[in-house]
């Protein structure tokens, strides 16, 4: 049924075209969000850097060096996994979650049961699916993280730390190295890496270093988690933009192929129709000629039919 085939193809082209409209819109939205996410990263950088400098200052101070923040505390481990809220972003979620799974497996192999704090709907769903429901879940903020979101996450981590049994905090997130490069990475935040250089500047601390550290730790974690969330969001938008661009290009290719098939089907239909008309005309002409011939010669073409 050649005419039917043409209609089917026309319908498929229309369907691919409307999908393409959606993917193109998503591509444009993602690329506009990349810039905004990058600006947020830049705005948050001075705070994180200065915070880092204060922590480094403290780690070089003899009275503070032995604090558990640097020396390590309990055996418990907290893993903060930062994913995205949405999919349609290529391998973005699966690659960061693979790194998270590896880390969890390593920690389990070393004999501890890590507590998972999942950020982003996809991360929560992943751990639920694996039968390791996260201790704390944060959803709906991964696209455009605010500092308050980071504060809420750190408050949850802090609750685990204050129980006294937790001595390590890890964060798994996608680092935004540049628009071209993003890499999922697991980092240990607590215990904080000590700078080994001995500082000669004698700082005056108010209150004393240990108490400053107790107060500084959540603030520092907030800065780090916030930075990780911003980088993850920017990486997500880049991944989505790339995935949607690929989908749009693919739709273009598909439309081209389908249109070619449709044109051929239409041409086939036309050719068949012409053949039928020509065949019919030929048959009629043949009939007329036969009639003349038979009336003249009384010759039966199909003798058995008479």
């Amino acid at each position: 049924m050649p005419a039917g085939q043409e209609r089917v193809l026309r319908r498929r082209i229309r369907s691919v075209q409307s999908t393409q409209k959606i993917t193109r819109a998503m591509e444009l939205i993602a690329s506009s969000r990349i810039l905004r996410a990058q600006q947020a990263i830049t705005a948050a950088k001075p705070y994180a850097e200065r915070m880092q400098a204060v922590v480094a200052e403290l780690s070089a101070t003899p009275e503070a060096r032995e604090h558990w923040v640097f020396a390590g505390g309990g055996d418990g481990k907290v893993v903060v996994v930062i994913g995205a809220d949405r999919g349609l972003s290529g391998a973005f979620n699966s690659s960061v979650l693979r790194v998270a799974d590896d880390l969890v497996r390593q920690l389990v192999a070393r004999g501890s049961r890590p507590t998972v704090v999942a950020v982003g709907r996809k991360a929560v769903a992943h751990f639920n699916f694996k039968g390791q429901p996260p201790a704390d879940r944060f959803e709906g903020m991964a696209d455009r993280p605010r500092f308050e979101d980071a504060q809420a996450i750190v408050a949850a981590v802090q609750r685990h730390l204050e129980s006294g049994s937790v001595g390590e905090v890890h964060v798994v997130s996608t680092r935004f190295l540049s628009v071209g490069t993003q890499r999922p990475q697991a980092r240990r935040l607590v215990p904080i890496e000590r700078t080994d250089e001995d500082r000669n500047t004698a700082f005056e601390f108010e209150p004393d270093p240990a108490e400053i550290l107790d107060r500084l730790l959540p603030r520092w974690l907030e800065a780090e988690v916030y930075a990780a969330m911003l980088e993850s969001a920017a990486s997500f938008h880049v991944a989505q933009q790339r995935a949607m661009k690929a989908a749009t290009d693919n739709a273009d290719k598909l439309i081209k192929t389908l249109r070619r098939a449709m044109n051929r089907a239409r041409q086939d239909a036309i050719t068949t129709e012409i053949m039928e008309i020509v065949g019919g005309a030929e048959a009629l002409r043949q009939d007329d000629a036969d009639d003349e011939a038979s009336s003249r010669q009384e010759m039966y073409v199909f003798p058995e039919a008479s």
Partner: peptide
């Protein structure tokens, strides 16, 4: 200006 090194909450 030129205050001694200090860290405070």
């Amino acid at each position: 200006a030129n205050h001694m090194p200090y860290v405070g909450a």
